[in-house]
Design a protein around this nucleic acid. Structure first.
Length: 478
RNA sequence: GGCGGCAUCGUCUAGCCUGGCCUAGGACACAGCCCUCUCAAGGCUGCGACACGGGUUCAAAUCCCGUUGCCGCUACCA
């Protein structure tokens, strides 16, 4: 019988969800899904002064938006005190942890001293061999204390990382680090290992900035007498400048991507590819295809740079595959803000039609208003460049006049029929198609770019088209 | 400083474990062409990389050693 795969995402609520963290969450989710296991959410809020519940809420909302639904949790470390107390009691009884009465101030001072002497800073082991009577006396004096682990003085600690391979560290380089802080709360490594153990996590998938923590956590597992999970350390994600991803290099928090108008599916697709790939280098994945194909063996070892251009490309691909009606629903917040849409509940058919005409031109949802605005406004904004290039030319006056007359008489204003009319006119007059199409396009829309001419005319309608050509003739054509 | 990690086109990467099929493949971006009424989309072509130096071998991107560079940890932060 194979054991259930259990992964977890363990953010600390000290800020908004960073895009690197999102990728970590995604890999954990995908790995668990692929193996029909569980994906657990654990909020690491042991830093009482920096943790805020609004961040926890934002993190969860972000994960839900991305579709990374967790199967257990959220568990808050701040509510799991009994777990850590029980563990520390066991360790203390077995002599694997001890109380340290040195205050942070003293520690810092001794650390600086050691450094000035050219020695490595860090804990000097002063309280390690305190007798129980001394220890009791110090406690009665009312001195605060922290719990430290008794670390081995020699030997090798090694583990086989799924991504990085075998990693070995000399135990002597690991100090007696703090397990429980003097405020009674667990320190990171302790809370993490105690929880991973308690939650029966089978695979710890996290950023490789945690590699140096792993031996410490292994030591805790060993002291607890538990079997450690498998570890998979993901390479970091950097910005274009090679540093940690930040606002300066584009965007850093999930919310920013959401506000820019990236689709959750596109972001998942992009993030999955940032560090992972299939051997055939597939770029675009259908819904649910990621969780089938994802595999930790396809994760690379080297850090990656967040490529905004590629994200835009993927997002555009996803937008092109979205139906106009769905797209209208998704773009509603931006349309609303631009004043193009009045109510998100009631999306006019006309907006959906406009979207259908311009769909392949958006990279993000935030670009939608500016790109369909010219189709929907009543007054045409004539682009000066378009006017000078396509209207202020010889022969335009005759062409527009002819076309205006033809359109005025046209009952069937469908794109197909319009095309027939234009084609036969062009043929009859022995003109190049562009010679006719371009001025009409500008006269009717004010722009040089846009949908195909016949779709454009059909969309605008006969009366408006005729009227606009008349206006252009009067105002712009010489 | 110590310890650990990483190193293929500008970017994401395939290949590395199990040397030869690699005159190093794909994707984004960029350039050109095609399609075409414009802009896109799409198609095609091009540009473009094994960090450096030694070794092992008939043969190295792939194995070994060293150098360099970048990153992380070295907290009673997580």
């Amino acid at each position: 019988m194979s054991t259930e795969i259990r992964t977890r995402f363990a953010p600390s609520p000290t800020g908004f969800l960073h895009i690197g963290g999102v990728r970590t969450a995604l890999y954990n989710y995908l790995f668990a899904e692929k193996h029909k296991g569980k994906f657990i959410l654990r909020i690491e809020d042991t830093d009482r002064s920096r943790s805020e519940s609004r961040y926890s809420r934002a993190i969860m909302e972000g994960l839900r938006w991305l579709g990374l639904d967790w199967s257990e949790g959220p568990f808050y470390q701040s509510e799991r005190g009994q777990i850590y107390e029980k563990a520390i009691r066991k360790l203390s009884e077995e002599g694997k942890a001890y109380r340290c009465f040195c205050s942070p101030k003293e520690l810092a001072a001794r650390g600086r001293e050691a450094e000035s002497r050219g020695e490595p800073p860090g804990y000097d082991g002063r309280c390690r061999e305190l007798s129980s009577s001394e220890s009791g006396r110090l406690e009665k004096e009312g001195r605060g204390y922290a719990w430290r682990i008794r670390t081995p003085e020699s030997g090798a600690i090694s583990f086989d990382d799924i991504i990085k391979g075998n990693i070995t560290v000399d135990a002597a380089t690991i100090q007696d680090f703090v397990l429980v802080k003097s405020d009674g709360g667990p320190a990171y490594n302790f809370a993490c290992a105690a929880d991973d153990s308690d939650m029966r996590i089978t695979h710890v998938i996290r950023g490789d900035d945690h590699i140096s923590n792993t031996p410490k956590q292994l030591l805790i597992y060993r002291a607890l007498g538990e079997n450690p999970p498998r570890y998979a350390h993901l390479p970091q994600v950097h910005g274009t400048d090679g540093k940690r991803l930040s606002k300066r290099t584009g965007a850093a928090s999930l919310d920013e991507f959401r506000e820019e108008g990236y689709l959750p599916g596109a972001l998942r697709n992009f993030l999955a590819l940032l560090g992972w790939s299939t051997s055939d280098a597939q770029q675009i994945f259908a819904p649910d295809e990621l969780k089938e194909k994802f595999d930790l063996s396809g994760v690379g070892r080297s850090p990656g740079v967040f490529d905004m251009e590629k994200l835009r490309w993927i997002n555009g691909k996803y937008i092109r595959e979205t139906s106009p009606a769905e797209l209208a629903r998704l773009a509603a917040p931006w349309l609303l803000r631009a004043g193009i849409l009045k109510s998100p509940e009631d999306i006019p058919e006309r907006i959906i039609e406009a979207l259908a005409l311009e769909k392949e031109k958006f990279s993000t949802l935030s670009e939608v208003p500016e790109k369909i605005g010219f189709l929907l406004r009543d007054d045409v904004a004539y682009d000066p460049k378009a006017v000078s290039k396509r209207l202020e030319k010889d022969g335009v006056i005759d062409i527009l006049t002819d076309i205006q007359n033809l359109l005025r008489e046209t009952e069937d204003f469908s794109r197909e029929n319009l095309e027939d009319i234009f084609r036969s006119y062009v043929e009859k007059k022995q003109l190049g198609a562009g010679k006719v199409f371009h001025p009409v396009r500008v006269a009717v829309s004010g722009q040089m770019k846009g949908p195909g001419l016949f779709e454009l005319l059909e969309f605008i309608g006969r009366d408006k088209s005729v009227e606009r050509i008349g206006y252009a003739l009067k105002e712009y054509v010489k």
